[in-house]
Amino acid sequence: MFRNITLGQYYPAESVLHVLDPRVKLFGALVWIISIFLMDGLFSFLLATGFLMFLIIISKVPFSFMVRGLRSIMIIVIIASVFNIFFTPGNTLVEAGPLKITDKGIINAVLMAIRMFYLIIGTSLMTLTTTPNNLTDGLSRSLSPLEKLRVPVTDIAMMMTIALRFIPILIEETNKIMKAQMARGADFEHGGLIKKAKNMVPLLVPLFVSAFRRANDLALAMEARCYSSGKKRTKLNPLKYARRDAIAYIIILLFLAGLILMKIFL
């Protein structure tokens, strides 16, 4: 059922990107998202492309593996491009009834497609080189200033950790319940959308019951191991910045500065 999700998957390898502090990578991803909106000239595109290629090469993640994640967003990209081609005003190149293809439309469509692909590749570079647990750590540390605003950051991080632990268990359980209900004559494959949704009821009810039972057990087990929410916790592997992290920050900032300068002067 959920087997072909590659977006947000971890690819184990030994590279500089893999050992970087997750906070650096989160910051990098944020800068990358901003930079996608900044690039509009040829040179800024070249700079961003060069930067992305550099990252892909040092990440040691096979390019084909990354491209697999693009397949799922292909439809969105195509739809967005089609709209851009037909609905951007400019010099008309081809005209068929109410539909016009303009020169600007084509340029916009291509730019849009490139932007979306870059967005996905750039952010998936982060998830491919960071373990989910590490990412959770990084997020909770990056967001820790929010604790002053009474945002329960440590509790949210705990929830993410537990979610990561239980997603595979619940998926397995879903498959088990599905098989059990199919053996009792349930039908999950035929019928229209509404019928299919109705047929999910015998799957969802037992799944929820079991999820609540698990949650209850887990809460008890966590309490037995001295967990109480909102309490200050220490970490087995606390995040520590190394020299390479500082270098990475500098490179990211230089890249951003370069893009901003191009935006202003070119």
């Binding site: 989910p132 647990n133 950790t161 537990i162 990561l164 632990r165 698990r214 057990d217 887990l218 087990a221 966590m222 191991r225 001295c226 967990y227 109480s228 309490k231 200050k232 916790r233 220490t234 970490k235 087995l236 592997n237």
Partner: peptide, 20 residues
């Protein structure tokens, strides 16, 4: 239902982490 983390050693550290 009593293992909290998706890495063995991090689960093992859960108790001491709570104790600070």
């Amino acid at each position: 239902n009593q293992i909290v983390s998706s890495i063995v050693e991090e689960d093992c550290a859960f108790g001491p982490e709570n104790l600070g």
